[in-house]
Design a protein around this nucleic acid. Structure first.
Lengths: 256, 256
DNA sequence: GCGACGTACGTACGTTGTACGTCCGGCGTA
DNA sequence: TACGCCGGACGTACAACGTACGTACGTCGC
């Protein structure tokens, strides 16, 4: 390894790795003689080749580490150890990069489906897949939720949902509405969890003393249920609401 | 060919397009003599006195006009015809301003409640109030949804919801969960409508031809229901999902 | 050999949020 | 009446941002 690396080399660290001592040769010593082109390159393992895929991954990494508002083209560039403008050879602008992030994350949705299972269970699995995505990419979620995804990747969950609805025996319009209701619930849950998570990140337990200062005449129920409100078993909360929707749908399906 | 004009440019084109004829007196002609302080003010209508309230209102106006990402302190300042830094005498920073926006909008929630009505109707009214807010301040919604509101204003809807849940006979934990499920649904619906609205703002009807290009093997249901999917009766969609949740809650209440 | 081309890069511009210092007009006290 | 204080309005300044543009270099088809 690394025997006879004559010209200080270009680090070629492929990852978010600033490479401590070297100037990374931004100045390029000389265009001088020597170094016959044919034999110069191959074994040196130049650099992993900048690519839209790598850029998107780096962006996701930064978002998950520091939050979406901390993402900047400059930070992505330094994470990849390239110049800022090089990114623009693979991504037209920041908005497009964020769309790439959204699509990438959306593609991680686990849409495994067992058509032989009873439809309520299939529906549950579908909504739970959304929730799992929220757990895997918590901070990228805002990006996903605020970018329209009309690519095939974005439509795939819809396809699955409509398939399940058809299996339940719903007619066309009802299927669409049922899908939308479940989707709305999934999205809303994710938003709620996100806010809870961010709140906890900023302060310890903000609610505890906040409730104490409330006017007991105006907020009797909030105060009485303070302990329940402070507790956040997101899993149980999620399943509760999901259960409501599914049982209501079952009831509706049975009537037809 | 290098318009190397060193200082020449700068142009100082100040705005997109505000206030057609007037310079709006940004320069303040003179602090001259005359104008006795006692009788000077009332009829002259100097300037409405910069205030946090006015700043927040201006911000909301700008957000509703141009979208939340177009909001900048500089734009708020010019809208109010003051210098940028003057804003900071009333608002510590932009984030705080956005929280002010969120709180202001949240306060517009119509929480009228008739305790003598049957609880399912009261619950419906509560969720519908959220929806109405979404209709009144569509673009400010993202701001509201992404800012934790733990002020009394933010807790008021929770109080109402818990009161309704208590009227339905739910115990404490169930009340909290029911409230959260309804809230998640309301939030999710709003997010969905928002995305639909923004999509329509950008292009005519993007879906129509988008569906045509899909692989029929992978997206049979989406294609079959293309017309239903293209149609967006947000009102009916909303009521459908709300109905699911309410009937499921009624069922649960009846079992206790 | 040579041109065309794709990609990495540096420079530069306009816009953003906001720290900091200055200035002024009205108020409390002497 | 005089004076000093203070809060609010303002200008200047800076770092960080997104990105338009021009350039330099490696590779590939002739």
């Amino acid at each position: 390894m690394s025997e006879a690396t004559p010209p200080a080399a270009a680090t070629t660290r492929d990852e978010p790795r600033p490479s401590p001592p070297e100037p990374v040769a931004p100045v390029r010593p000389e265009p001088v003689v020597s170094v016959r082109p044919e034999q110069a390159v191959p074994e040196q393992a130049v650099r992993p080749a900048l690519t839209r895929e790598r850029i998107v991954r780096a962006a996701i990494g930064l978002i998950e580490a520091d939050g979406p508002e901390a993402l900047s083209m400059r930070r992505v560039a330094t994470a990849l150890d390239v110049a800022v403008m090089s990114l623009y050879n693979h991504v037209p602008n920041k908005k497009a990069l964020l769309e790439g992030v959204a699509e990438h994350v959306a593609n991680r949705l686990d849409l495994a489906d067992d058509p032989s299972a009873p439809w309520p269970e299939r529906a549950r699995a579908l909504v739970r897949a959304h929730r799992k995505m929220a757990r895997d990419f918590p901070r990228s979620l805002t990006v996903v939720l605020s970018h329209k995804v009309d690519t095939p990747a974005g439509l795939r969950p819809a396809e699955r949902a409509l398939a399940v609805a058809a299996a339940a025996g719903f007619d066309g319009p009802t299927s669409v509405r049922a899908m939308r209701a479940l989707l709305a619930y999934a999205v809303g849950t994710q938003m709620r969890e996100l806010r809870v998570a961010e709140a906890f990140a900023h302060l310890g337990t903000p609610a505890a003393d906040s409730f104490a200062r409330l006017d007991p005449d105006e907020f009797p129920h909030v105060i009485a249920l303070a302990s329940e409100l402070a507790e956040n078993d997101t899993e149980a909360d999620f399943e509760f609401g999901l259960d409501l929707l599914i049982t209501a749908l079952q009831l509706r399906a049975a009537r037809a």
